[in-house]
Write a protein that binds this DNA or RNA. Structure first.
Length: 309
DNA sequence: AAGTCGTGGCT
DNA sequence: TAGCCAAGACT
């Protein structure tokens, strides 16, 4: 390709708004032959299955989600089925997926869907965004994956793929920037069907090939046009992501407390909860936090249980 | 807008 | 081993 000599920009200059036209076909073709057969991608999953999977997959690996997802949808095949349960049952069924407030929010979303949307997961992005536990990413993901709409689906995988393939950096910024949103929108294929396939395909590429560590460029369908690779894979120079320490934190104590409560249908005496952690101040703070979050319901006589309301 | 919020596998 | 990392949301 020769450089343009007139005012017409090259259709394929790297990083411009047209670079998507060279990215979409190979990535989508790769997806068609390499996509994992995940239950929420099957037609029978429906919008509710897609939505449940998106909640569970927030910060949690696919392999850990799979069994809980299957059990969840068998028990609550529609939003209304979950909505009529106490929120504590959602927390219990959440098991050890982590971040149990997601279970509470998913229950709250099911209630809202039942009350406001006749029991059907809404198609409208703004209505999805208004549901508890649904942010910009999840609203776009449900609208795109469940309803085939055209949205920029900007999760950590897509952000990394775009950072490398287009921007030429090893990792995206810590927090999603306006520039990233603009780029993702500019790269969005024009028609709905292609856009939704691109969303799923670029995400899968980040999950399977263009991974955070040990990326496998020899399996990448766009390796030959990847800006980061063409630049010699310069290492990340920005601020390192803040490490998540866990041992000894309130989060660990909360996890231990909730694990006890999940195992017991009957209310649990405080004396039993006291055994999960030695340090009384931190222990009390963690329990108070769980109550404040609505994950634990305090009863008279120093008893605690998962919330019935 | 920087902190908080679980859990477990992997290197 | 001790971090690092995994389809974020919320405040």
């Amino acid at each position: 390709m020769t450089a343009p000599t007139n005012t017409t920009p090259s259709p394929y200059s790297p990083g411009d708004s047209d670079s998507g036209t060279t990215l979409h076909p190979p990535v989508i073709a790769w997806f068609d032959s390499h996509a994992r057969d995940l239950p929420w991608r099957r037609p029978e999953a429906g919008p509710w299955g897609v939505m449940v999977s998106e909640f569970m997959l927030q910060q949690t690996p696919v392999n850990r989600v799979l069994p809980v997802y299957e059990q969840w949808l068998r028990r609550w095949p529609r939003p209304a089925d979950l909505a009529q349960e106490p929120p504590g049952e959602a927390v219990r069924a959440w098991g050890r997926l982590g971040y149990p407030r997601r279970a509470l929010r998913l229950h709250g979303a099911a209630v809202a869907i039942t009350e406001r949307h006749g029991g059907d997961v809404p198609e409208d992005h703004a209505q999805l965004l208004a549901l508890p536990g649904i942010g910009e990413y999840t609203a776009a993901a449900v609208a795109s994956f469940a309803y085939g709409q055209r949205h920029a689906v900007l999760d950590t995988n897509v952000r990394r793929v775009l950072a490398r393939a287009v921007t030429g950096t090893q990792f995206p910024p810590n927090a999603t920037t306006a520039a990233e949103r603009k780029l993702a929108r500019a790269l969005l294929p024009d028609d709905e069907r292609t856009a939704s396939r691109w969303a799923a395909a670029s995400m899968e590429l980040g999950a399977l090939v263009c991974t955070a560590k040990n990326e496998t460029c020899h399996r990448c369908p766009i390796a030959t046009q990847c800006a980061w690779r063409l630049a010699g894979k310069p290492p990340h120079d920005g601020p390192a992501r803040r490490g998540q320490t866990y041992a000894g934190t309130d989060r660990q104590v909360r996890g231990k407390l909730l694990a006890v409560l999940r195992e017991s249908v009957a209310p649990v005496p405080q004396s039993v909860l006291d055994r999960v952690w030695d340090e009384p101040v931190q222990r009390a703070r963690a329990l108070d936090g769980l109550v404040a979050d609505g994950l634990v319901e305090p009863l008279p006589n120093g008893l605690y249980r998962l919330p019935l309301t």
